[in-house]
Nucleic acid binder design. Structure first.
Length: 910
DNA sequence: ATCCTCCCCTAC
DNA sequence: TAAGGTAGGGGAGGAT
């Protein structure tokens, strides 16, 4: 997995080679080069689908134990028990056994329908669990007990874990909703009642969401059929697409001759079934029977049955109105990114101690007796998809979207035999094929990766209670204070179990800190382990190339190279002061420390989520102004995506940043099909006083930000929306939901906004566009922050609300009754009269803000001038002034298109 | 000195 | 054809 980024950035640098030559050279060296073409040799005697076998075994065991159910209350229910529960997980398992349900030993969203969990003591945990559950209901064990007592399946909604359920308090986002739209609470409540959660992690939505979500209470699925379907999925994935007759035979022989490694005897009793299933699957009609090792013959037809595969027809913003959704379903980098984040959230803190960080500082870190194990799966994507193809173990294999020998699809993962040909992750498939014409290409199988990753973490947690996830296939374990006598033995045991369970190999590094453990894994790969004792650290580091250090990428490597520094030994010769002068305080210190093997990071250090966003930088094309509304649609969909992601984490954000990739002037067509090519990266942001996850608010903000770019849509090659200053939903509800504080903060800000043009806050962007900073909003938000910190009642601070004319009528109309009454009181009862006559004002000025993005704007000017002419005149003159300023600043796009969007008008105000 | 925005770099 | 995402850290430079 570590190769992906290097290669993908390398490809992108192909587009930018004139500007950033160093990127290309810096990316030439990878781990694969260093370790050459070692083909993975298993320490265990078997290969193949032991994972499938083991799962089958567990399920068979469960079925054997299950009594015949007179009343299968839990038919279709499959639980995973998370952590300590009352009653115990074994008791819950018994209930499942006796009443027709299923019990899963490993968490998999593919199989599990409900997560059972007792109340969580630590407030932070709930968000991690929410993210981890990704839409699956997290329910208290009493749901099971009560269902049994009632002799029927009760709805789980009332049993949902309290900390995870939204409370019904009104929230600010409802202020911004239009009258006819549902509040987010409504949506969530409906979701609860309808069983199928509306909110889900985007990665969870791929293909399996139907299975995972719909097999809840109401849609009962016969347990046995569910399992067999999954087994089919696992075994049949890709096989009919790639296997040849010859290979079919070889697989059959292999399976006959060799049993899976550990537990061989236990497994053998199910083998006949397993074997026949394999054969059944392999005998599916296959249109491709050529040898995978013969050049152009091995055209792989990607299985159309793979559920993760969206329509092939649509691959750009020009042809697909749902491009955003479809894109994320197929993006490997999206999966890598979301998994990384998911697993980090899922296991943020050790199971035995919440404050392990502090205890570590006082003991292991200082005493120098730490024992850290770094575990990393070998060429993860390839390993997973060739588990069922032992005959391909020593053949060059890669995972890629396309097998087109002339194409620009990127190789995502290459096994070691492929690497011996110089094939690297990130390389175009045409280049890879040029290096190795008989390279076997497999398509992605995201579901399988997820399943293996879940198993990987289940194993790690069974062996260690201090696990820090790095990504879906990589983690650190701190075994310092466990009862482990020999970390090397433990590492060996873990790797063995990973192999036996998943059919994939893992490597491990063992050392006294995370840095050295990670470096040790580099030596261990593939399929090995390596221990670096403290006395051997210096020796090991001295010849190590600097880019082996985490944090040293191609740019830093190139800069250091210019100083004749290529190894850690050479780096060590430079003083800390000098490094800090050249590379900044933090980076300099990091280099100084790492070159000496010093690393003070702690396994399990908790990291709060700081930002959430979504980018699309592929397939983005808008031909001309006719596509403007398509661009708007794109932005809308992006906001939906971000809103969903925020909600799935239980977060709301205050700062919104829109990134645009703009084709660089005179840039050639990108080498990569539908790529973004050589671009300028532009970004604008805005901060609002109170956090939101509401999609309509996001859309308004995004459109305003978009307008501030003054960009010709033809030039856009990528768009990203990011939300930061995140606040936990519950925390923010408790601490900040105070209407007066919001109103009065708004007032303070509006005082500054009264003279927007004379504040001197506008500045010039690199691209010449004018940026109007939201000094008003930022000022108020800072004020609010300080207020919260001081535990001071914000209602006591300022007593003057903003003028009525600054409030958005639509927002006011949608306030909950009690909130409206409160606000009306603040305005001395004038609010009622204001909203009854002010509808036209709101719509008109809002339209003006959003300029051409708001289609209905055109016909509203008469209304606008009829009502409150003074106010509107002022606003119009401001906008005219800004337009003038934009023209002066060269902000008119090449097409002569001018936007009038302005971020100073915050969403909650006119 | 501190905070902010914009942007780059990095890892997976 | 093809799916070049995600998130954290940090530096530069400007505002206060």
């Amino acid at each position: 997995m570590s190769l992906n980024s290097k290669r993908s950035s390398s490809n992108r640098s192909n587009d930018n080679n004139k500007r950033k030559k160093q990127k290309i050279t810096a990316n030439q060296k990878t781990l694969g080069v260093v370790w050459g073409s070692n083909s993975p040799k298993s320490p265990f005697s078997d290969v193949g689908s032991y994972m499938t076998e083991k799962n089958r075994k567990l399920h068979n065991q469960f079925n054997a134990e299950a009594t015949s159910h007179n009343n299968p209350i839990f038919a279709g229910v499959s639980i995973f028990v998370d952590g300590f529960t009352v009653p115990s997980s074994q008791e819950l398992r018994s209930y499942m056994l006796n009443y027709g349900g299923r019990f899963e030993n490993y968490f998999s969203r593919h199989r599990v329908t409900h997560i059972i969990c007792t109340n969580l003591p630590h407030s932070k945990l709930k968000n991690h669990l929410r993210a981890f559950s990704a839409g699956l209901p997290v329910v208290k064990p009493t749901w099971i007990l009560d269902s049994v007592a009632s002799n029927r399946l009760l709805t789980w909604a009332p049993y949902q874990l309290e900390q995870l359920s939204n409370n019904q308090q009104p929230k600010l986002s409802t202020f911004f909703l239009s009258r006819n739209s549902k509040s987010s609470e409504d949506t969530f409540t409906n979701a609860l009642c309808q069983v199928e959660p509306v909110i889900h992690d985007s990665s969870a939505s791929v293909g399996k969401s139907e299975d995972g979500h719909s097999s809840g209470v109401e849609k009962v699925v016969e347990p046995s059929s569910q399992i067999s379907m999954e087994a089919d999925d696992t075994v049949s994935e890709n096989t009919d697409a790639i296997m040849t007759d010859e290979q079919l035979t070889s697989v059959g022989v292999k399976c006959d001759e060799e049993d899976p490694a550990g537990g061989r005897n236990d497994a053998s009793k199910d083998e006949r079934n397993f074997q026949s299933e394999l054969e059944t699957n392999y005998q599916k009609p296959s249109t491709s029977v050529s040898s995978p090792c013969s050049d152009d013959q091995n055209v792989i037809e990607f299985p159309s049955s793979v559920s993760t595969r969206p329509s092939k027809q649509c691959h750009s913003t020009l042809s697909d109105p749902n491009f955003v959704e479809n894109y994320f379903k197929s993006s490997r980098l999206h999966f890598i990114g979301t998994w990384r984040s998911r697993y980090r959230k899922r296991f943020p803190i050790s199971s035995t101690g919440v404050d392990n960080g502090i205890s570590n500082i006082n003991t292991s870190s200082v005493s120098g007796n730490s024992a850290i194990i770094h575990v990393d799966m070998d060429c993860f994507f390839v390993s997973v998809v060739i588990r069922n193809h032992p005959e391909l173990l020593d053949k060059p294999v890669a995972v890629c979207h396309s097998n087109n020998s002339k194409g620009t699809a990127e190789v995502s993962s290459a096994n070691y035999p492929a690497r011996s040909y110089g094939i690297r992750a990130g390389m175009f498939v045409r280049d890879a094929k040029a290096l190795c014409p008989h390279l076997v290409i497999f398509p992605y199988n995201f579901e399988a990766y997820e399943e293996v990753a879940d198993q990987f973490y289940s194993i790690l947690h069974r062996h260690c209670n201090k696990v820090q996830a790095v990504s879906c296939d990589e983690a650190f374990l701190d075994v310092t204070h466990s009862n482990v006598e020999d970390p090397e033995l433990l590492a060996s045991s873990i790797r063995k179990e990973i192999y036996e369970t998943t059919g994939c190999t893992a490597s491990a590094g063992i050392a006294g800190n995370m840095l050295i453990a990670r470096i040790a894994t580099r030596t261990a790969k593939p399929n090995g382990q390596y221990h670096i004792s403290p006395e051997r650290v210096q020796n090991h580091l001295s010849q190590l190339p600097i880019n082996a250090l985490p944090g040293v990428g191609h740019v830093l490597q190139e800069k250091l190279k210019k100083q004749n520094v290529q190894t850690c030994g050479q780096l060590m010769m430079i003083s800390k002061v000098s490094l800090q002068n050249d590379y900044g305080m933090k980076t300099g210190e990091m280099l100084w420390n790492y070159s000496r093997g010093i690393d003070n990071r702690l396994v399990g250090d908790f990291q709060e989520c700081k930002s959430i966003g979504a980018d699309v930088n592929w397939g983005v094309r808008f031909k001309d102004m006719k596509d403007f509304f398509q661009c708007e649609n794109f932005l809308t969909k992006l906001c939906k995506e971000v809103s969903l992601r925020l909600r799935s984490c239980g977060m709301q954000g205050r700062t919104f940043s829109l990134k645009i990739k703009k084709r660089r002037k005179d840039a050639d067509e990108p080498a990569k099909f539908m790529g973004c090519g050589d671009c300028e990266n532009l970004s604008h942001s805005v901060t609002i006083p109170v956090g939101t996850d509401n999609v309509e608010v996001l859309q308004r903000i995004a459109k305003q930000l978009f307008g501030s770019f003054y960009i010709d849509v033809k030039e856009i090659r990528g768009i990203g929306l990011h939300v930061s200053r995140l606040e936990n939903i519950e925390t923010s509800k408790q601490e900040k939901f105070n209407l007066k504080s919001w109103v009065t903060s708004g007032s303070a800000s509006m005082d500054k906004q009264k003279h927007p043009m004379s504040n001197g806050h506008d500045k010039q962007n690199m691209d010449g566009t004018s940026v109007h900073e939201c000094r008003d909003l930022r000022g108020s938000s800072v004020q609010m922050d300080n207020n919260i910190q001081n535990n001071q009642s914000s209602a006591d601070r300022i007593s003057t609300p903003p003028p009525l004319c600054h409030l958005d009528v639509e927002v006011i109309r949608n306030l909950p009754t009690e909130v409206f009454s409160e606000l009306n009181e603040i305005y001395g009862g004038k609010l009622v009269a204001y909203i009854t006559k002010g509808k036209s004002i709101s719509e008109s000025s809002s339209s003006l803000q959003n300029s051409l993005l708001e289609k209905e704007a055109i016909n509203k000017e008469e209304e606008l001038l009829d009502v409150e002419p003074i106010l509107q005149k002022r606003k119009l003159s401001e906008i005219e002034a800004m337009q003038h300023e934009a023209v002066e600043g060269g902000a008119v796009s090449d097409s002569g298109f001018l936007h009038t969007g302005d971020r100073r008008f915050a969403p909650m105000l006119l």
